[in-house]
Design a protein around this nucleic acid. Structure first.
Length: 429
DNA sequence: TCTGGGGTCCTAGGACCC
DNA sequence: TCTGGGGTCCTAGGACCC
């Protein structure tokens, strides 16, 4: 039986999320901007129609924005994450857990193979679409094909051509139509073919999706890579990329930011490093991992060609994989001192945790409340419940955020008893 | 004059994705 | 003047070890 993958994604995701909460934005040209309001990371249809590309620096757009009354919003990732969860869970009502892959914040692959006999897939997809629209007011598109790569392509067409009404099923398309569409679509629309590869392919005479689909996967594998040959096979309906229903364990955690203004001294970089380590550690703990290698990097602004450029990173391997905020902060600052050079204007810095391993320890993210006494109460309650579960030897106090935004407690079976008396809890900032 | 080979770790960089 | 952040995979060269 022919496989049937569906790719469902939210149109103009961040803009649509904003519109769901502020309907006055509907019908108006809207963009959502990245950190520091630097780049455009989402565009409404009206803005796309003006020819604004993804990732355009906002300052290049000021004039156009004024002319057309473009509304620019700073991004609100909490909101988008929340909407994403709801979106995914609605999709989950239409398939089993093993038939859904959450691919990104706004995209999910569904394996609809088993539903072909029960339903007309196009109307099934339309039901999904209607429910998402009704329940959370997000517009979505659905592409269906016999491989993930084809479903991506179908999804692209579903958006590009209004006659599809947001649902395009390649499996129902006759071959002549499919080929005609492939001939009219540029190769860079294919999943896995980016800017650079498109250039190289063009030099080889491969311009359209059809050209690529007709090329010889073996020869192309020699010239490019195994990834390329898989893409070609997938375009021909040979399934090489399976649905991934269990989210693979992360291999690295990155925490980095660009600075609003250029930094020339080490102090603000130190501050930033401590912050990066804190956010990365809290992700690490959420994943239940510890980290064996930490990389610290700093860089100048590559767009300022008038300035001398500097990029430097350094890695540190911990003797024992860890999630200890204090130790990691110290190492990060020391690493920074190692690579910092005066005379440069720094634009960006960050930390990368790699060689992550699962840990047996339990971490609780406990507090984000203002009242200190209440915090103390809740900390004690939480500690007692941990002691009940693991015994008193299991408790080790983790780090405490200096600003008091989050309290974290690391309860680790292997660690010695750090805690002999509840009254000794370090509750002072 | 003639300058091993294999393995690992680290750094750097290039490509792609969202 | 102003150019995001978080991921994956792959390759290659130098340092260092045996």
């Amino acid at each position: 039986m022919k496989r049937a993958f569906a790719l469902c994604d939210v149109n103009n995701c961040y803009v649509s999320c904003e519109r769901a909460f502020d309907p006055s934005l509907i019908g108006k040209p809207v963009v959502v901007l990245s950190n520091n309001d630097g780049c455009v990371v989402a565009r409404s249809a009206e803005v796309k129609a003006l020819g604004v590309e993804m990732g355009t620096p906002f300052f290049q757009l000021r004039e156009l924005a004024e002319q057309h009354g473009i509304i620019a919003l700073s991004s609100n990732y909490r909101l988008y994450a929340e909407m994403s969860n709801r979106f995914m869970s609605i999709l989950g009502d239409f398939v089993t857990h093993e038939e859904q892959e959450v691919y990104s914040i706004d995209e999910s692959f569904l394996d609809l193979t088993a539903y072909q006999q029960l339903y007309d897939l196009e109307s099934y997809a339309k039901q999904i679409r209607a429910r998402v629209q009704k329940w959370i007011e997000l517009p979505i598109s659905v592409g269906i094909g016999s491989t993930k790569t084809l479903s991506k392509l179908a999804n692209h067409w579903s958006k590009k051509h209004s006659q599809f009404n947001g649902v395009c099923n390649i499996n129902d398309m006759d071959e002549a139509t499919l080929h005609r569409r492939m001939k009219r679509t540029e190769v860079n629309e294919v999943w896995g073919i980016g800017r650079q590869l498109s250039k190289q392919l063009a030099a080889q005479g491969i311009i359209t999706v059809f050209d690529l689909a007709r090329s010889n996967p073996l020869e192309m594998q020699k010239r490019y890579s195994v990834v390329m040959s898989r893409t070609i096979k997938e375009l021909n309906g040979v399934c090489c990329i399976e649905l991934e229903t269990v989210t693979p364990v992360k291999k690295q955690i990155v925490s980095s930011r660009s600075f609003g203004e250029l930094v020339t001294t080490i102090e603000p970089l130190e501050q930033a490093m401590r912050y990066y380590v804190r956010t990365a550690v809290s992700k690490l703990r959420k994943d239940g991992s510890v980290c064996a290698v930490m990389t610290v990097f700093i860089r100048t602004n590559p767009f300022r060609s008038q300035d001398p450029q500097y990029y430097k990173s350094v890695s540190f391997r911990f003797p024992v994989a860890t999630d200890d905020l204090l130790v990691m902060s110290k190492v990060a600052v020391r690493s920074l001192k190692q690579i910092f050079k005066t005379g440069y204007k720094y634009k960006k810095a960050g930390v990368i945790f790699s060689e992550l391993q699962p840990t047996s320890s339990v971490t609780l993210d406990l507090f984000s409340i203002a009242d200190i006494d209440e915090k103390r109460e809740r900390l004690i309650v939480a500690l007692e419940s941990v002691v009940d579960k693991f015994g008193k030897h299991a408790v080790k106090l983790g780090s405490v955020d200096s600003k008091g935004a989050t309290w974290e407690m690391n309860c680790e079976n292997r660690s010695p008893n750090y805690l002999s008396n509840w009254d000794e809890l370090p509750l002072v900032y």
